[in-house]
């Protein structure tokens, strides 16, 4: 089974780190294969930014995402640019505070996760991406939770591991609550 994930936002949100955390969880701590590719503009901060992850039980031949099964949109631009590529009945996760005026006639399963707001509640806006990872884990059930936590520990600076794991838990809880409702 091959799952294609696209995460879009702007530079500085930790978009690429998000992709790396997901890929590491699958192929280093889990036993799946994974690939992460990224694209960004010439700007160091604030420009368009995209991370793509492919997860598969088999060897991954073609390493690019064509039609994602899952889209995470962390900016309005990313939403508008990528939403039409999403597979029918694919999963769309958006941060509603960053993506206003969503289209209504889409054949997708959409989840709204106010990751930035939750992160601000934790005192660090920068961990919005990890809140999103938590919600992502709950919604998709694609990862072992311990694998993800290991991956977070490996991928964030030592001093911020605790904060990031809290962010992950908050996101996970939020994601679970969305599934119930």
């Amino acid at each position: 089974m091959r799952v294609e994930i696209r995460i879009g936002g702007f530079g500085g949100q930790g978009i690429i780190r998000t992709g790396l955390i997901l890929a590491t969880a699958s192929c280093v701590y889990g036993d799946k294969n994974a690939i992460q590719t990224a694209s960004y503009g010439p700007e160091s901060r604030g420009g368009r930014c995209r991370s793509e992850v492919i997860i598969s039980d088999e060897d991954i031949d073609f390493p690019k995402v064509e039609h994602p099964d899952i889209l995470v949109a962390m900016s309005k631009e990313a939403y508008l640019q990528y939403v039409d590529d999403l597979k029918e009945n694919g999963i769309l996760i958006v941060d509603p505070d960053l993506v206003p005026n969503k289209r209504e006639n889409l054949k997708v399963r959409m989840y709204e996760v106010p990751a930035t707001k939750i992160a601000e509640g934790l005192g660090k806006k920068i961990v919005a991406n990890v809140v999103m990872i938590g919600a992502f884990a709950a919604i998709t059930n694609l990862f072992g939770l311990e694998h993800l936590k290991e991956s977070i520990r490996h991928n964030v600076p030592k001093a911020f591991i605790k904060l990031n794991l809290t962010a992950f838990e908050k996101g996970y809880e939020y994601g679970k609550s969305l599934l119930k409702s």
Binding site: A34, I35, T37
Partner: peptide, 9 residues
């Protein structure tokens, strides 16, 4: 450049 920037196991 694609392979150079690819992240993989």
């Amino acid at each position: 450049g694609f392979t150079g920037h690819l992240w993989e196991r």
